[in-house]
Amino acid sequence: MEREIHIRPMDLLMAMQCKPGDLATIALVSGQPQRVIMALEKLENPMRNFSAFGYTLWTGEYKGKRVTVGNGGFYAPDSALMTDLLCAAGVEYFLRLGSCGGMREDIQIGDYVLADSALRGDGVTTYYVEDEGFIPSADQGLSDQLAAVFNHEFHRGMVWTTDALLRETKAVVNNAIGKGAIAVDMVTSPLLTIAQMNNRKATAVLVVSDNLITGEMGFASIRVFDAEKRMVDCAFDVIEAIDV
């Protein structure tokens, strides 16, 4: 191959007929479709302006502000892809609505974890960052705004991102806990890494769906469903507070 890189983010956006300015500067991203639908229902005049590979983004208005909502990725590789695309499209603020497993006994199903930083257990960010010790951070100001409007109990700290949900063994989990992680997910690391590399503001709030310490699984628990609904509502309160 003679070219430096096969496809740049903007190449892909253009190939999908998505031009700069189509998306808003604020993006509310999630993996699970139900969260996207709940967010979409809050937008006025939403327009679908990106659709490729099974990922769809809509842009509309919320209390006078333009907001893009959609699927920001389920796992680390697709989250990296979507975050890169969104950065190229001009998104300045990323609010990630996700889910995670708690890694402390006191973190209950249906609680929230606010990610301050990410422990990179994923593979995709090694393509972006050479320094193995790099710890991507959430934007402090945006996270503080989220914490301020989030009047429900939440835990704040480092989130370990893994690629291997079914290989969360005692050894690797305790290693992550030893490095300060309080929860595990499959998305936060690439989101924060790529946003930070592009000098964008990003934060992530995650509903606790299971607990690695107690072994409790609540993937279809009403506590999770209720928490997801409140999370979407609170995210829009943050959007209202963002000064753009």
Partner: peptide
Amino acid sequence: NREFYSKPGRVQRILY
């Protein structure tokens, strides 16, 4: 029963 009452979209509709 679990499939029905954990389906994304339906659960949110009936609850909210």
